[in-house]
Structures are given as structure tokens and as C-alpha cells.
Amino acid sequence: MARVALLSNPRSTGNRSLLPRVRSFCARNRDIFHYEVESVDQIGTALATIARVEPRVLVINGGDGTVQAALTELYHGGHFEGAPPPIAVLPNGKTNLIAHDLGAFGDPLVALERVLTLARSEDLSDHIVSRELISLSEGNGAARPVLGMFLGGAGLADTILYCRHKLYPWLPNGIAHGVALLLGLVSILIGRAPAFLPPRPEPLKVSVLKSGELQGRFAFLMVTTLQKLLFRGNMPGEGTRAGVMQLLVIERNLWALLSALSAAVRGRLGRGTLRGVHLESGDEIRIEGDHSNVILDGELFEALADRPIVLKPTAPVPFLKLAA
């Protein structure tokens, strides 16, 4: 039995320089079973093979798309008898929100070494946490749902796409995120955005089961089951079960956006009412729009008026939290 199974995607951007170090580390530690895939289409075969070595921990090493595809296949594929092993995610993507939520920061090799140390211990129970996943279907029921943990829509999705296509090729990740945020604020301030700024978001209708609906052009739309977010803030309502999916919608108003950002940085988001800031939790969320972009853990979807995006939580999945 392998103590750790490591699933790597060599084609992810972060692995272009990291993978030689990962291979050397695995060669020195024989209780790691390392499986490399050339594309996300091979992840199902990879997990079926990994299941045969019965690892204590499954580690995902790749970008956001790799993590999203692995979670989807892990949940739907039935490769492991009973519950799957706890999952760890190396901080190797563009935003690393899932890794950060699980206490993985900085050098991915340091995080992998920490995972191996925990896997070699007799008792992992103090480090295993449960997280629900977001199950996304496109309203027609034709394809199996896609699973993830962080969804962005409205102006947030448009800014993410702007950052991906316009800024990542030229700037380091952290600087690109800061520039994208600044340009997004400028776009809201001047109203109709010029071509060199993130575009104005399309109108959306967001419905939360039993809680009503919101309509309009929004600067920010987020649905997540994570607890830790950017700026080291926490989602309001974490730990509750009134609805495991947390929804945050911010109207396309500069004051509302700055107020929400300030509250998030200070850890006070959700502790009081902010004009133009809407917080909900629920077990079903529907997003309808006119060809409006929605991004789940790096994968792009489109919300339509006659084919809404439908979000539901899954049963809890075990993850390995690296921080004490």
C-alpha cells in the first residue's frame, strides 16, 4: 500500500518548472506512487490505477482545470470502494483557492513533504476535514454534473477571463490579480468600459431556493463551499447548515464593491448590512442570463435564459488539511 498517491498533470503551467523537482522527490521517497497524465481525459484511468495501490492520501498536482476534473471523476467514477482517501491539493494553480483553504501555501514541494509526513503518521484524523462540492449542471440534464468548490460569475468572471487572456502572459500571478482588480474598479467607475478594460457584465437573474431572486448587472458573483478566501478572509456563515453553498453578490456600484472589499479584508463581511451587497446560503442556486460567463474552478460555462446554470451541494468529501 502506498502512503501517498500523487496525480500530476505535466501540461499545467506551474508544472513546467516544478515537475523535475517533483520527480526527484518521488524517486527519493518510495512510499509515493506518482502518476502523470498528459490530458484531463486520462484522469479516470489514472484514478482507477491509483485505487489499486490503496493510498492513505491522494494528492492533486496541477492547475485549476486538473483539480476540477479530478474532483469530478473522483466523485462520479466510483473508483474507490467506499469513501475515497482524503484529498490534498498542492498550491500550483493560478489562484490556489482550494489549496489555501486546506492550509497549503508557498512552495508546492514543501506542501508535498508535509503531506508525506502526515501520511506516515499513525493517525490522520486530526487533519481530515469535510467539504461539500458544488455540483454544476446546465439545466438540460444531458451531461453529468461538473464538480468544483469555487464559482465566479458576472463581472468577476469577465475580470478573471480578462486576467487570463490579457495579463497572465505578461505579468506574475500576484501582480496580474492586483492589476485586474484595479482595472475592474476603473471599469465600474467610468461605466461603459473601453476595449482595453474588462467588459461590462451581462444582465443576470440569480435565484436561491426558498430565498427569492436578484436581477441586474452585477460587479461580483461568487458561490463557494470553501471557508478561506482571498485576502485571508473567511466566508460569512461558515460552519452553518442552513445551506452549505455560500452566495455573495455585489451590485455594479463602486461604493458597494469597495465596502465589501474593506469588510472582507477586516474579516467583517457578513456581520452587518452593506448597501448593494447580498449574502445568501442555500441548497440550490440557479443562474440565468444572456450568454453570461460563469467559471467553476477554472472551467468556463455559459448561463442562458432558457438553459440556466443549476448549482447543488454534494455529500461531504474528505480532504487533508495541512495546517494544525
Rank of each mutant, 00 (worst) to 15 (best):
R3P: 00
L6M: 07
P10G: 03
S12L: 08
T13C: 06
L19C: 03
R21F: 06
S24R: 09
S24Q: 10
I32M: 09
F33Y: 03
F33D: 02
F33Q: 00
E38F: 05
A48C: 13
I50E: 00
L58K: 03
V59A: 08
V89I: 15
N96Q: 01
A99S: 08
A104K: 05
L112V: 11
R114K: 15
L118Q: 01
E122D: 08
L124R: 00
H127D: 06
R131H: 01
I134W: 00
L136Q: 04
L147K: 09
L151Y: 07
L151K: 07
G152M: 03
L156Q: 01
A157V: 07
D158W: 04
K166C: 11
L167P: 07
P169Q: 01
W170G: 13
L183P: 04
I190Y: 05
P194C: 05
F196P: 08
L204R: 09
K205E: 14
L214H: 12
F218R: 09
L221Y: 04
T225V: 06
L229Y: 02
N234M: 14
M235E: 03
T240V: 05
L248Q: 03
V249Q: 05
S262K: 14
R266A: 15
R266H: 13
R268M: 13
G270C: 09
G270W: 00
L274H: 10
R275S: 11
R275C: 08
V277L: 10
S281P: 03
G282T: 01
G289A: 12
S292G: 14
L300D: 11
R307P: 01
P308S: 14
P318R: 04
